[in-house]
Design a protein around this nucleic acid. Sequence first.
DNA 1: AAGTGGTCTAGACCACGGC
DNA 2: CCGTGGTCTAGACCACTTT
Lengths: 257, 257
Amino acid sequence: MSAWGSKSERVREHVLDLVETMAVGDRIPAERKLAEELDVSRMTLRGVIDDLVREGYLNRRHGSGSYVAEPKIAQPLTMTSFSDDMRLRGFVPSGRTLELVTVAAGARLARRLQVSPTEPVVRALRLRLADDVPMAIETLHVLAALVPGLTADDLEHSSFYDLLAARYGVQLGTGAQVIEPTVTSEEESARLGVPVHSPAFLFERTTRDSAGAVVEFVRSIYRGDRYQLTATLLAPKRRDQDRARSGPAPTIAESHS
Amino acid sequence: MSAWGSKSERVREHVLDLVETMAVGDRIPAERKLAEELDVSRMTLRGVIDDLVREGYLNRRHGSGSYVAEPKIAQPLTMTSFSDDMRLRGFVPSGRTLELVTVAAGARLARRLQVSPTEPVVRALRLRLADDVPMAIETLHVLAALVPGLTADDLEHSSFYDLLAARYGVQLGTGAQVIEPTVTSEEESARLGVPVHSPAFLFERTTRDSAGAVVEFVRSIYRGDRYQLTATLLAPKRRDQDRARSGPAPTIAESHS
DNA sequence: AAGTGGTCTAGACCACGGC
DNA sequence: CCGTGGTCTAGACCACTTT
């Protein structure tokens, strides 16, 4: 996976399109057949299918075939915005921008964003709703220089990550998110419509672009009565004895209760 | 990856051993060279290295080489027991079994374990400590028939998963873990040594064996002041337009604050 | 230019599932 | 039995990094 016009990319699109036209549980064509149809070697097709299986689109059954997977109840958490996440789960996302200001980063935030403390930073406070029910409060910090002309309206009507890509040409790389349990403050409780000191998740996310530069720092409070995390644990690959390192990483997913 | 004596398995062990003798940042031999040394094709070796990269042992640099990766600060969460997790992080794990009884499953638990409500079930209540500091309270449920002769002492001196494998011949498959934010009850607070209503994680884990049968149901309370979760988000694979499905799953890891 | 990983090929044989 | 996925091969050529 890398070059845009690579054979794998093209095959991936084809197979993904195919999967989307099929029903859950349907068997996709045999690898040898599909590879020939798409004019690639079987190994190339297998690489693509391997990815799709890993991503949860397909299941393999040795000796039987590859089948369109059940859409996960708990969708994997991707680096999408809240909006995309909610849509993925069948909710209508919306948001209200409670605050949108440009301020100097300050010491703490400057360290997070890896910039000078005097660097102008856009701080946006957003209430996030799913089906018009408050779900989370999000505080977004992003370099002002990176998003000239950003308005509250932008944030309410499109995914911030879409904006970053489409308008500002920022290609996202990896991100790290720390998750802690917390309880809501009075202000948070009022905004979320939950009792004070309700259990909640605190998410702190630092996102980088594909070059490794910090793009944003986001602090979110998710109400614990409507949000849960689901981790799928995989059996570790056997190793004759334990080492100082660990096995395969499990996946995590968000879901609603 | 599957058969025990497969070439990939053997190669994996070799490369993993090699990695462990090298320092972080060292470059491993070139693929062509290493493949020849291990008497496999380059493609086979690449498959193994792909896995190791995914698992965080190695980093690849196109045109340069593959390098021993920095041990992750936040180790990936594997299907290990609390004991192994703590050891992995440099703590000395210990535990006190507060209760070990055999009871009828009852309606709720029977559904979780997928057995009859009258089925005898071992319930163990354990206090988990890291460096002698209470870290979590764990309630373990497992079919009594699966673990004949299990004693409180067993649970204090060895990993339950090790026990399952070594003494009872249970091979673990996948597990699902739901994570919610909560606050500690008075009893939990007392046992963990934290103020009442402290933020905490509630973990509910259902583990299956390699055949898909439910092995255990575990409910754990982790104190939120000493435990946090870290999710590594991966950039989604590009798709010309958004579809009803999502991209690659991120990894999650536990770490201490 | 030389060396490295990235992609792809056109086969081969094995292991499992279902008819 | 046959069709399926699982593994593996011995190359080829491309793209990138380093010298």
